[in-house]
Design a binder for these strands. Structure first.
Length: 464
RNA sequence: GGCGGCGUGGCCGAGUGGUUUAGGCAGGGGCCUGCAAAGCCCCGUACCCGGGUUCGAUUCCCGGCGCCGCCUCCA
């Protein structure tokens, strides 16, 4: 059974499921006011891997991830771009899904949009006011965190300690600097929805509480997001759920940063890279592999060097797929499910090692180590006893990679006529034992950017 | 000021109180090959510093040093 670090307790504990055989996950999605960057890519990949692994173990998984399509940034960006918030968010949501598709991230089962949930958010805020834990000011409605038992649980800091560091804006009417806005009264020119407090729009933290509980119900299993969402976003979500008397997420999972030169990549530091930049200059699978190579809670450094290392690693896997002409399990189905032991002992043990690593707080580096050991074994057995003897091992590599969403590529490149002719000429020269000519033809091919290999079937060229 | 994380061999990156090792990339030697490539085999006496606990610490404790993060509606 899967064990994961739980931010709420600070310990790695078993992920208890609300309903046997069924897992429910809510992952905070993007605010669609700009193109996605590497950080968005990482959290999407981390939770895609978690989801795929749960599916692999045979669970029925419901995965919900939202789109935030109304907030200050959306309004500001739309204004400066001379467009409307809804046009802006429609555009960037499309960009978002294109990037997710490129990364091989499965679409969520449900994608709630904040703007579609405003009425239900108003209901929730009204109930918080009724319960006496929220109050109205001249500019909105706020939650009184002092009235929420256990506030600071996720931040792992007591209320007083958080208060000491909180920034206080001049002219605020909040009772405590930590109180956060549930409803913002409209300023001129802003999109609005009706409410008991006049026209306005919801605060950010409310949507995820309302949408997750609506779609997954009380006591859903896992709530995830990137580490920066712990405080205040998730803390404040939880605070509302507690104040509403609802049973909220049972396990909190957060992934680590993408860093650049050892520093957190962030917009304010101006050191962020868009996902498109990376995908345009590297194999999209390399980013998934880069994410898998590090533990999900560790920071990962994305540099041209680490990307190149991941691509070299990928080449080793692809080479195996080519050697065995492996079918891609993700060609036939969106995800793979473990069919259980096959009776081929070495294969079954390797899959068990893979699962043990994944069960141990999603230890993907360990899982990858099991994969590469299996790659070596498959090649060794094939060298000694032929490809058929090693086939179950090689197929297990593809299967287990697919369980992490990593697809292997066996297709050789399309050859243009000239290249194919050079390769054929080289085969003829070798057959005639005219090695000088064969070597010069290889140089010719190499000069055109091909890597030349001899196989039992003759010259094979591929891109390095 | 409060809270937390990290410091592993050329690089990336796991892990562990001591028996034989993560894994990948790069590098060296070998097998294979007409020569290569791919694949396979072998190779690096790594764990920030100083104390302490211990028969024994990279792993536990304390103290340093260095780096990073959160306490701001950043993934």
């Amino acid at each position: 059974m899967l064990r994961l670090y739980d931010t709420a307790t600070g310990e790695v504990t078993e992920v208890g499921l609300r309903a046997p055989g069924r897992a429910s996950l809510y992952v905070c999605g993007p605010t669609v006011y700009d193109a996605p960057h590497l950080g968005h890519g990482r959290f999407s990949l981390v939770f895609d891997v978690l989801r795929r692994y749960l599916l692999f173990t045979g669970l029925d998984v419901t995965y919900v991830s939202n789109i935030t399509d109304i907030d200050d940034k959306v309004i500001e960006r739309a204004a400066s771009a001379g467009t409307t918030p809804s046009e802006l968010t429609a555009h960037y949501e499309q960009v978002w899904w294109e990037a997710m598709d490129a990364l091989g991230v499965l679409r969520p089962d449900e994608v709630p949009h904040a703007t579609a949930y405003v009425a239900r958010m108003v209901d929730a805020v009204a109930e918080l006011v009724d319960r006496g834990v929220a109050y109205e000011t001249s500019d909105g409605v706020y939650l009184s965190v002092a009235d929420v038992p256990g506030y600071g649980l996720l931040a792992r800091q007591p209320l007083e300690s958080l208060r000491a560091g909180a920034r206080v804006e001049a002219g605020e009417e909040k009772r405590s600097p930590l109180d956060f806005v549930l409803w913002k009264k409209a300023k001129p020119g802003e999109p609005t929805w009706p409410s008991p407090w006049g026209p306005g729009r919801p605060g950010w933290h409310t949507e995820c509480v309302v949408m997750s509980l609506d779609l997954l119900g009380d006591g859903f299993d896992v709530h995830g997001g990137a580490i920066d969402l712990i405080f205040p976003h998730h803390e404040n979500e939880r605070a509302q759920a507690v104040a509403l008397g609802r049973d909220f997420a049972h396990h909190w999972v957060h992934n680590g940063w993408v860093t650049v030169d050892g520093e957190k990549m962030s917009k304010s530091l101006g050191n962020f890279t868009s996902l498109d930049d990376l995908l345009s200059r590297s194999d999209a699978r390399a980013y998934r592999l880069l994410v898998l190579r590090a533990h999900y809670r560790s920071p990962i450094e994305i540099t041209p060097d680490t990307v190149a290392q991941a691509e070299a690693q990928l080449a080793r896997l692809d080479e195996l797929a080519r050697r065995f002409e492996l079918a891609d399990p993700l060609e036939a189905a969106a995800f793979v499910v473990d069919a259980g032991p096959t009776g081929v002992e070495e294969r079954d043990e390797a899959v068990a090692r893979f699962r043990a690593a994944m069960d141990d707080d999603l230890d993907t580096p360990g899982a990858l180590a099991a994969v590469f050991e299996l790659v070596r074994r498959a090649n060794t057995v094939a060298d000694a006893s032929g490809a058929e003897a090693a086939r179950p091992l090689a197929e297990a590599v593809a299967e287990v990679c697919a369980a992490m969403g990593l697809r292997l590529r066996r297709a050789s490149e399309e050859l243009d006529d000239e290249t194919a002719a050079l390769a054929a000429a080289r085969d003829a020269a070798r057959a005639a034992r005219d090695f000088a000519r064969a070597d010069s033809l290889r140089d010719e091919l190499t000069g055109r950017g091909w890597l030349v290999e001899d196989t039992p079937e003759g010259t094979r060229v591929r891109r390095p």
